[in-house]
Design a protein around this nucleic acid. Structure first.
Lengths: 213, 213
DNA sequence: TTGAATGTTCAGTAATTTCTGAAAGTTTAA
DNA sequence: TTAAACTTTCAGAAATTACTGAACATTCAA
């Protein structure tokens, strides 16, 4: 079994990129191969096409399963297992986002929460905690947003995009619709800011300003 | 120079996570250190605190500069360079997103565009192109969205979140505001769907359905 | 129960990435 | 100029990560 140059270039590229997304090159190639294959493929085919060992394929399959990315198939009279991507492209993106959140963001949030419970022992710790609080709040916001986005299916999302909408515009609409809070809200309405916490020891400015230079 | 255990745990954790975000452990630690430090620090301090070689620090600085993440400072009578994070936490997040987009998503989009211009030579290639088109469109949508988000500053973003808004709700609002297109739009309004392209050879269903199992 | 077909594991090896430290480069004050 | 103070570079070493392939495990038909 072989693949055309066109498909090959996609598979290789996806392999390189895959390593950015939390799995290694081979696993990325394996998944790419499944995605563009018009039917489920088995481990031997994968090993042959990608020119890697059978053992490596087995480990890659295990990894992809831990990411919940693949679906197993069996054919009568054939004892081999066949693999295909689970769900559609949008499902895939959601799954990857979610897995990454679990593996990367959640532990960070947990650590930050723990640290923020500690009493700062001196000025540096107090300063550090303020920066950490900012990061913590930012991560929480991003998590909230992405989980909102994940609730959408692709055509909804696209319709939203296609309306030519800026998020800013969305916000204006929302403020109007929800005019209870946020009274016109110029630019930095102190009591609504989770960032730039100033409650603790140090200077008001979140970033040190360099006295010289 | 040393750091407290509290700060150390943050710096180390950030180092581990940093590798997920496109730079290596040491670079992540260096940046974390700058973020929680209440004043700019110099290369020797970094090397001492993190217990790494001076040359390594130099390379890390270079890397952070290529990400546009740090600011230089000089003090009179001191020839050393001092470093601090550039901008606030939100700027940092924006910068990282943007750099990653440039390094990871843009090349993928470019490759996909090129491939999609080719004429499929057979059914497999046609099938593969359809999957690639889905990925291409999804990536474009995500890029559009994140660039929208990047246009917001943190308090705007938070106000948006704090309004208790689901994105779905946003969409409803928008459809109302923009009722030119999308006539009520139940669920799969064919002519508005960029995903699930059906214009090419293969079956209408985007995912193969396995005939057995 | 056997053995052929297949899947999994893991110790050792290979490939890749990161780090060190000495040498070379740069800047500035005198 | 010189030389001290500092930064950068990069060849080789160390650390980490990925891969192979042979041994082991499992399944199933006969």
């Amino acid at each position: 079994m072989t693949i055309s140059p066109m498909i090959e270039s996609f598979v290789f590229h996806f392999g390189e990129m895959g390593s950015r997304w939390g799995f290694n090159r081979t696993v990325g190639q394996m998944y790419a191969l499944m995605v563009v294959s018009d039917k489920p493929i088995n481990a031997n085919e994968i090993a042959e096409v990608l020119n890697i060992s059978r053992g490596n394929v087995s480990m890659g399959i295990k990894e992809l399963q831990s990411w919940q990315l693949i679906q197993l198939h069996h054919y009568p009279g054939d004892r081999k297992e066949y693999y295909s991507p689970k769900g559609d492209i949008w499902d895939m993106a959601n799954t990857v986002f979610e897995e990454r959140r679990k593996r990367e963001v959640d532990p960070t949030l947990s650590l930050l929460r723990d640290i923020l419970l500690e009493q700062p022992g001196n000025d540096s710790e107090a300063y550090a905690q303020n920066r950490m609080r900012e990061i913590h709040d930012l991560l929480e916001t991003l998590v909230a947003w992405t989980s909102e986005l994940q609730g959408l299916n692709p055509d909804k999302l696209n319709r939203l995009m296609k309306l030519g909408t800026g998020v800013s515009k969305v916000m204006d609409l929302l403020s109007k619709a929800n005019k209870s809070s946020s009274a016109k809200s110029k630019s930095r309405n102190k009591d609504q800011l989770p960032f730039r916490d100033t409650s603790n020891t140090h200077s008001d400015s979140p970033m040190r300003d360099d006295s010289n230079d």
